[in-house]
Amino acid sequence: MTGQQQRFARRNHGTGHGYTLDGHEIPGVTTIIGLLDKPALVNWAAEQSASYAVENWGRLSELPLMERAKQIRNARFAKNRQATTKGTRIHAMAERLQAGEPVESIDVPLTVESQVQAVARFLDDWQMQPVCAETPLCNTGYRYGGTLDSIVTSPRLGTILMDWKTGKGVYDETALQLAAYRAADLTLAEQVTVGPRGGRKTSWVEQPMPEVDGCYVAHVLTDSIELHPVTADEQVLAAFLYLREVYDLWTTRTGWRFRDTPGYAPTVGAPIYPEDKPVKEQDDE
């Protein structure tokens, strides 16, 4: 596709990112899957707030009531940031190891040293060689984007799409994620050009999505890796595409962030009773 106008792009903004196709924003795979109800997360958040309150009862009791409530309410976000930071570091180290860097040459933080050593052993044991890593992708027909963790080859498994998970468990939603990635038809490959004075310029080249023989999750534990096969077949893809349709039919219609788009059409109107209610008061609510 060299020489053609680039259709797909990933744009980073702050700590997040988004995707565009043909100049229009498209939803990410994880955003679409986020439509699913996750009661376990609600329970987890409640447990984090309760634990924080119990463990910090003395200090919190000296604070004003509203500040006390704010710190308890936000406790889960601090815990989640710690886990996210650790997971991001492990992902970054795994990417470098897959690219062939020896673990001895990587400055590994002590907080993830045992996990990185486990990743290195795992890659050696399965003789995994990289095809691509942290690769943006999209499906141009169903118009969604995403970023896969890695595609590798292994003598025992062939060419596989692999996702690294660093949380407490591996959940069925991962199958939706990998099925969506597997069905992509366009990826972005990083291309680095070195100038005559040693300057480096990075650009992105569109390429077809590689075919894979299977999908797997590498679950990173404290000092070992569990490799799980994942069913990411046509039925699982169909379930994801139903969610994709719900996103278009409902989220873009009622979501506040879409209020300036033509498709925004909330289903609940302003109150019509009592009839003497001031218009301004209706708008404020």
Rank of each mutant, 00 (worst) to 15 (best):
residue 76 R to Y: 10
residue 251 T to F: 12
residue 85 T to Y: 02
residue 85 T to P: 02
residue 151 I to G: 00
residue 94 A to P: 10
residue 179 A to C: 03
residue 60 L to G: 10
residue 52 Y to V: 12
residue 62 E to N: 10
residue 160 I to E: 00
residue 244 R to W: 01
residue 102 P to V: 09
residue 253 R to K: 15
residue 276 D to S: 05
residue 23 G to L: 08
residue 240 F to L: 07
residue 184 A to K: 00
residue 47 E to V: 11
residue 89 R to K: 12
residue 205 V to R: 09
residue 220 V to A: 04
residue 258 F to W: 08
residue 85 T to N: 12
residue 36 L to N: 07
residue 89 R to M: 15
residue 252 T to C: 12
residue 209 M to E: 00
residue 99 A to N: 14
residue 149 D to V: 07
residue 201 K to R: 11
residue 35 L to N: 07
residue 58 G to R: 15
residue 192 V to W: 00
residue 55 E to R: 15
residue 169 G to K: 15
residue 248 D to P: 01
residue 42 V to E: 12
residue 171 Y to D: 09
residue 235 Q to I: 06
residue 110 L to G: 15
residue 191 Q to H: 14
residue 221 L to A: 08
residue 216 Y to L: 07
residue 245 E to V: 06
residue 237 L to P: 05
residue 216 Y to Q: 05
residue 232 A to E: 04
residue 226 E to I: 14
residue 179 A to L: 01
residue 18 G to P: 03
residue 174 T to G: 04
residue 201 K to T: 14
residue 222 T to N: 08
residue 267 T to W: 11
residue 270 A to G: 09
residue 207 Q to V: 02
residue 22 D to A: 08
residue 167 G to P: 02
residue 52 Y to A: 04
residue 37 D to Y: 14
residue 163 D to P: 07
residue 7 R to D: 02
residue 236 V to A: 09
residue 97 L to M: 02
residue 33 I to M: 12
residue 130 P to L: 10
residue 117 Q to F: 13
residue 87 G to K: 06
residue 61 S to W: 03
residue 187 T to Y: 00
residue 33 I to V: 09
residue 41 L to F: 10
residue 210 P to V: 00
residue 265 A to R: 10
residue 88 T to W: 02
residue 227 L to T: 05
residue 76 R to H: 12
residue 232 A to F: 03
residue 76 R to T: 14
residue 131 V to Y: 04
residue 199 G to N: 14
residue 67 E to W: 10
residue 236 V to M: 12
residue 143 R to V: 06
residue 115 Q to Y: 03
residue 237 L to V: 07
residue 104 E to S: 14
residue 239 A to D: 15
residue 30 T to P: 01
residue 266 P to F: 05
residue 89 R to L: 15
residue 12 N to F: 09
residue 189 A to K: 06
residue 143 R to A: 08
residue 135 T to W: 00
residue 142 Y to I: 01
residue 121 R to E: 13
residue 221 L to E: 07
residue 204 W to E: 00
residue 72 I to Q: 02
residue 223 D to I: 05
residue 146 G to D: 02
residue 95 E to F: 04
residue 231 T to R: 14
residue 1 M to Q: 08
residue 103 V to A: 11
residue 271 P to F: 05
residue 45 A to F: 09
residue 260 D to K: 14
residue 173 E to A: 15
residue 173 E to Y: 12
residue 29 V to R: 00
residue 122 F to H: 13
residue 116 V to G: 10
residue 22 D to V: 04
residue 11 R to V: 14
residue 153 T to A: 04
residue 137 L to W: 01
residue 144 Y to E: 02
residue 112 V to G: 11
residue 127 Q to H: 04
residue 84 T to C: 09
residue 102 P to T: 13
residue 53 A to F: 11
residue 285 E to L: 11
residue 220 V to W: 00
residue 238 A to T: 13
residue 116 V to R: 05
residue 161 L to K: 00
residue 202 T to H: 01
residue 208 P to M: 03
residue 154 S to N: 06
residue 198 G to W: 01
residue 131 V to L: 09
residue 73 R to Y: 10
residue 96 R to I: 01
residue 89 R to A: 15
residue 34 G to E: 09
residue 194 V to A: 05
residue 233 D to Y: 01
residue 158 G to H: 05
